[in-house]
Amino acid sequence: MGLGQRSPIVVRPWRQQDLSAICARAQVLAFDLDTTLARSKTRMDPDMAVRFAAMTNLRPTAIVSGGRFEQFRDQVLDALPAAADLSALHLMPTSGTRYYRWGGSGWQQVYAHDLSAQEREAAVNSLERRARQLGDWEERTWGPRIEDRGSQITFSALGQEAPVDAKEAWDPTNERKNALAQAVAADLPDLQVRSGGSTSVDISAKGIDKAYAVGQLAGILSVPVDRMVFVGDRMDPDGNDYPAAQAGTMALRVNDPDDTLELLEAMEPLLRA
């Protein structure tokens, strides 16, 4: 079950919430990456990089996303201005199955929960079989469809390197990803299967998702989970940001990076107050 009682909840868009009250309580800020801080697999925009850097100087700030550490580096770290406080930044790639901190001269892995060879093989086999059954094994792809990230197996319907526009058009309602995730979950009852980014399904160890990640971070920072803000675009019950909301964070739903940028612009003066 993970942290706390995971009863069904509805996460409202951030504009429908009391942002002043949330910022007054916020001790930690946490963000999804793809479609939240940046478009899928693309570098963070300069304006976003400046606003995000400002957050690191106001509160401990985390990124929790399904991508590998290298994706965090290429999309976020390489885009950040010198003003960013790296010592306040917590990186939790592959949906929180790994955790990195800045060590002064480089990023150091704090923990990793890798799947066994048998679990990874079963995940790969199920993903291919179910994707073919459901018509999700596309003929044209850009890069590998299935990526073994050690602690997570990720299926990308159009390939890891697909153009952003093609990815965003493939399943705008999330129905195809959700159906594939449900089918694969039936094959792998001992593993965690979730609908991920715009074309992806992620598989990791049971009970290790974004709820686990925020719980770990809360313990490390000695901060109650309900004093953490989590910003993400997939806050629907089938989405991979939803467990962070269920864990008890102050969850803020965004549509895309432009929406997130407006949120950060609104949050900054409130966090400084």
Rank of each mutant, 00 (worst) to 15 (best):
A82G: 15
L89P: 02
L89Y: 00
D85V: 03
R68S: 06
L89C: 08
L77W: 13
H90K: 12
A88I: 06
S65H: 14
A79H: 10
A88T: 02
D74S: 08
A79Q: 07
T94M: 14
G96K: 04
A84L: 05
Q71F: 07
V76C: 05
S95R: 06
L89H: 00
R68A: 09
S87R: 13
Q71L: 06
A88K: 00
M92P: 01
A79W: 06
A82S: 05
F72C: 13
F69N: 07
G66K: 15
D78A: 14
P93Q: 06
S95T: 13
P81N: 03
G66H: 08
Q75E: 02
L80R: 14
V76D: 01
D74Q: 06
T94F: 04
A82Y: 02
L91T: 03
D74V: 12
H90E: 07
G96F: 00
Q75A: 05
A83I: 15
P93H: 03
F72Q: 12
L80P: 13
A82I: 09
Q75P: 09
R68D: 06
A84I: 00
A79T: 11
L80C: 15
L77V: 10
M92I: 03
L77R: 10
H90F: 15
M92W: 13
M92H: 11
H90W: 10
A82E: 10
R73K: 11
S65F: 07
H90L: 11
P81Y: 13
L91M: 10
G66P: 14
L80N: 07
Q75W: 09
A83C: 06
A84H: 03
V76T: 06
F69Q: 09
D85C: 09
P93I: 12
L86Q: 01
Q75T: 08
H90G: 07
F69K: 10
A84D: 03
E70T: 06
G96Y: 01
Q75M: 11
R73Y: 12
A84N: 01
A82F: 00
Q75V: 08
A84M: 03
E70H: 10
G66M: 07
E70R: 14
A84T: 00
R68T: 05
A83S: 14
V76N: 04
L89A: 14
F72E: 14
P93Y: 09
L77N: 08
P81S: 00
A83K: 13
L89V: 01
T94E: 13
A83E: 10
L86W: 00
Q75H: 11
P81H: 03
G96Q: 01
G67M: 02
D74G: 13
S87E: 11
S95G: 04
A82C: 04
Q75F: 03
A84Y: 02
S87F: 15
M92C: 02
R68M: 12
V76P: 05
A79F: 09
H90T: 09
P93V: 13
P81Q: 03
E70N: 12
F72K: 08
A79C: 12
P93R: 03
H90S: 08
P93W: 04
A88M: 01
V76M: 02
L91I: 02
Q75K: 05
F72R: 03
H90P: 05
H90N: 04
Q71N: 08
S65T: 15
A79D: 00
S65Y: 04
A88Q: 09
